[in-house]
C-alpha cells in the first residue's frame, strides 16, 4: 500500500505540473455538456426544421459517447507511459519492489477506475437514454477494459510519441464499431467483432429487450476484450528493456 501511495504521490505532483488533469476533466466535462444540453437542443431543432427525429438514435449516441472516455484516458495513459519510458523512469521503478508489473497495474487500474466512473455518470445523469441498471455492470467492465487496450496499443507498438500519435489515430477506428453494429443490416457486420466496442454496443441494444442475446454478446465481448488485453500485455511486458 505504501509503495502504491508513493507512486500516486509522484503522479499527483506530475499532474499538477502539467495539464494532464485539465485534459481529463475538460474532455469529460465537454462530453457531459453535450449530452446534457447540446444533444437535446440539436434534437429539438432537427425535429422542428427537418422533421428528423434524433430521439430514435439516443441510445446509439449514448453508446458512442460512453466509448469516448476510455479512448481518451487510454491515449493519455499511453502517452504518460511513453514519456516515462523515454525518461527512463520505468527502468528506475522496475528495480524497486514495485517492479514493472506493479507500475503497469497501477497506471492501468487508475485509468480504468476513471473510465468506469465517467461511464456511470454519463449513462445515468443524461435524460436521453440508458440501459437498465441491472444490465450495466458487464458493459461497464468492457468499457473500462478499453482504456488499457488503447493505452497498451500505443505503449506496446510505438517506438516514440510520433508513432504513438499514429497508433492513437488507428485506435480511433474503434469508434466506428457502434455505427457498424447499428447501420449495417447484414451479417457481414459481425466482421467488425474484432473491434472490442462492437460487443459493448451489442449489449447496449439487447439489454432489457433480448436477454439471451445480451448474455451471448456479454460472454463473447468479455472474451474478446480479455484476449486483446492479454495479447497486448504480453507484448508490452516482453518488448520493454
Amino acid at each position: 500500500m505504501k509503495k502504491i501511495m508513493a507512486l500516486a504521490l509522484a503522479d499527483i505532483k506530475n499532474i499538477t505540473r502539467d495539464s494532464t488533469l485539465i485534459l481529463v476533466l475538460f474532455g469529460t466535462v465537454v462530453l457531459y455538456i453535450m449530452v446534457w444540453f447540446l444533444i437535446p437542443l440539436l434534437s429539438a431543432l432537427l425535429l422542428d426544421k427537418l422533421v428528423f427525429n434524433l430521439a430514435d438514435y439516443y441510445l446509439l449516441i449514448i453508446c458512442f459517447f460512453s466509448l469516448i472516455p476510455p479512448l481518451l484516458f487510454g491515449m493519455i495513459t499511453g502517452f504518460i507511459i511513453l514519456e516515462e519510458r523515454d525518461e527512463e523512469i520505468i527502468t528506475f521503478i522496475a528495480v524497486t519492489p514495485v517492479r514493472k508489473t506493479g507500475y503497469l497495474a497501477y497506471k492501468l487500474s487508475i485509468s480504468m477506475a476513471a473510465a468506469i466512473t465517467s461511464f456511470y455518470v454519463l449513462a445515468y445523469t443524461n435524460s436521453l437514454a440508458h440501459i437498465p441498471l441491472l444490465y450495466s455492470f458487464f458493459p461497464a467492465i468492457m468499457i473500462a477494459m478499453e482504456t488499457p487496450i488503447t493505452a497498451l496499443l500505443i505503449a506496446s507498438f510505438a517506438e516514440n510519441k510520433v508513432e504513438g500519435m499514429a497508433f492513437g489515430k488507428l485506435a480511433g477506428i474503434m469508434f466506428l464499431a457502434p455505427f457498424i453494429y447499428y447501420f449495417v443490416p447484414s451479417h457481414w457486420k459481425y466482421l467488425a467483432g474484432i473491434l472490442p466496442p462492437f460487443w459493448v454496443t451489442g449489449t447496449f441494444f439487447t439489454a432489457g429487450s433480448n436477454i439471451s442475446l445480451y448474455w451471448l454478446y456479454t460472454v463473447i465481448g468479455l472474451l474478446i476484450h480479455g484476449l486483446v488485453l492479454a495479447v497486448l500485455l504480453k507484448i508490452f511486458i516482453n518488448s520493454q528493456r
Partner: peptide, 26 residues
C-alpha cells in the same frame, strides 16, 4: 509533453470548431 499539447490543443480546437454549429444549422 504530448498530454500538455493535447490539453491546449483540445481547448483551442473546440473554440476553432464553433462555426460547425452554423454548418449544422444549430
Amino acid at each position: 509533453n504530448v498530454n500538455d499539447y493535447f490539453a491546449k490543443a483540445l481547448g483551442l480546437g473546440l473554440v476553432a470548431s464553433l462555426p460547425l454549429a452554423q454548418y449544422l444549422h444549430i
